[in-house]
Design a protein around this nucleic acid. Structure first.
Lengths: 328, 328
DNA sequence: ACAAGCTTTCGAAACGTTTCAATTTAATCT
DNA sequence: AGATTAAATTGAAACGTTTCGAAAGCTTGT
């Protein structure tokens, strides 16, 4: 493999000269620099990443850790991340799985973005203590080397529940997420508060795990509740909403948007292709990624970081209908 | 940052002893090895990846390159890849975008898996010529350092068209993929052959680009064709099929599975949540990934590699109905 | 013609490992 | 006890860069 050394001897200069030339230092005269660069091209020189990393103690790489590769909004999130990082000459690397955690202490990246339940809080704190820069997207952590971009879960969940209530629905079911999920806890808390503000509202919480299966499973209880009249269901994410709709359609005669009114959260791509289209809470995943990248770069470069938050809006599909029509 | 050197002085031994001990060499007596390891733990030692890469000229990393992060079957594919790689102590790293191509010549990985249209064939051949090991998933390349895991596109497309024909449909539309896509070319070729084998079949090819928009766009022409009677449509991937269904449902009175019969390809997750469920061609994405990983590891380790192929099957949804019923 | 001050180039150390060859230590045999 | 051999440890070079400080090569001004 051709190294800086080969270029040096081909050009009849020292390796330091080559290094300076290739890195565009102004210590080198323009002509020699050009000559060296063209020789490097001819020889097909490519710098050795490992050597550079070792010496410079920086990688120009950012790692993003995901629980798995199948999340429905990862595409957009990663797009936002990558664009922002590339603008600043960083490359993005996606990792998943416990095994890959070690890349952080091994200094494989200049910083990492975490959206990965397989990291315990203490583990992350440990890395931060040793000086690693982190941005967490799935929890809140108070540490000088950690920042977060928060989703406005409270606003989103409130929007969802109030939307159901405003349609005249007072029997509300909320299908929850795993206890370990920060987002789920925040959303459910907001659900309770929103329900409590309306005296006639009757809220029932159902367990869930953020996957289709648990939405499907919640269907049985929801069908029971629906026997007493129309019910509004807020699934704490779209996947569960889809599972629920699947159940209602295949296992019951209940009509979505009439007997059962469903709201999801996340506005995943599937949501708008459902029949009826799913009413859901939307937020910009690209912006989420871009802000995370921006924060991480600021930390790496030692610039001050300000707290960021992603705003939400309600998207109306047909999975929630006007209750008043029925009343007439 | 604590290095092997710190451990050496803390333990009162040389750095080579530490290195041997940490790597489990049998040159070191068990007691000292244990002692050194416990000191390393105490100090919180983590090996420096860059240094090891530089010296050993191997990274224990495999890079997978994707055109973007939003493909619908990447989740399963990457799962298969990762499992297989982890079993052999390799880590998987996902990259996307032209910028990241350079990681290959920079020797950031021991090998790479390519499913990324942003690589030109010549570029890949160039890397292979310089000794980089590659497995390509989106093309065929003849080179000692390149292998591929082929999808059985011919069988899949044949299955799809014959399924439509066997329902009594003889007006067939095929919505194609981008000319640059190897899979699209193979599938379309098989479509033509399958249609030619049946004298009464009338095939019409429509342009497409493997995205929802082009399925939607194809809808107009398909609606025209459907005026003369039921039509069978094979969309060369599920995304286009979904776009098409969206058009038919929102812009026409045509009934899917009655007036227009739709088959997709890939069996993406969305397909089974469509209403009606999409009839499509399925294959194991996990196995695809696992075989790709296996092939790459064989190349890296210098073991012989055999050509592999992924088999397909037809999944029946309700987007294709029995034409005979109508006739009755 | 020569010191002073630039500009351009070079030598060498360093980053943190691994690993070969050499050395020291311990064990075994006569 | 001394020689031989085996086992455990060490020294040093190497991997391919970057970068500091020094050296060499030019200009200028006197």
């Amino acid at each position: 493999m051709v190294s800086i050394k080969d270029i040096a001897s081909a050009a009849g200069v020292s390796i330091s000269t080559v290094s300076y030339a290739l890195n565009g230092s102004d210590r080198i005269t323009k002509e020699t620099a050009d000559r060296i660069r063209s020789i490097a091209d001819e020889l097909g020189y490519v710098p050795n990443r490992a050597a550079r990393m070792l010496k410079k103690r920086e990688t120009m790489l950012v790692g993003v850790f995901l629980t798995d590769f199948s999340g429905h909004f990862y595409g957009d999130l990663l797009y936002g991340l990558k664009e922002e990082l590339n603008r600043r000459d960083y490359d993005l690397i996606v990792c998943s799985g416990r095994r890959s955690h070690r890349m952080i202490p091994e200094r494989a990246f200049d910083g990492a973005i975490i959206l990965d339940a397989t990291f315990a809080d203490e583990e992350l704190i440990g890395y931060a203590d040793r000086g690693h820069k982190l941005v967490v997207l799935d929890r809140e952590l108070d540490h000088p080397n950690v920042n977060q971009v928060l989703l406005d879960n409270k606003a989103g969940a409130t929007l969802a529940v109030e939307h159901l209530l405003s349609q005249g629905l007072c029997r509300i079911c909320a299908v929850g997420g795993p206890e370990s999920a920060f987002d789920a806890r925040q959303r459910m808390r907001a659900v309770r508060q929103a329900a409590e503000r309306v005296p006639e509202a009757r809220l029932e919480e159902l367990p869930g795990a953020f996957d289709k299966a648990s939405g499907y499973a919640a269907g049985a209880r929801i069908a029971e509740v629906a026997r007493e009249g129309p019910v509004g269901v807020f699934c704490l994410n779209d996947e569960m909403a889809i599972g629920l709709c699947d159940y209602l359609r295949t296992q019951t005669p209940l009509r979505i948007g009439r007997d059962v009114h469903v709201v999801g959260y996340d506005n995943i791509e599937l949501a708008q292709y459902m029949q009826p289209r799913l009413t859901t809470i939307d937020y910009s995943k690209r912006k989420w990624g871009a802000l995370a990248a921006e924060q991480l770069l600021k930390m790496i470069e030692g610039r001050p970081v300000e707290q960021e938050r992603i705003y939400v809006r309600l998207i109306e599909g047909e999975s929630v209908g006007q209750l008043k029509e029925d009343a007439k």
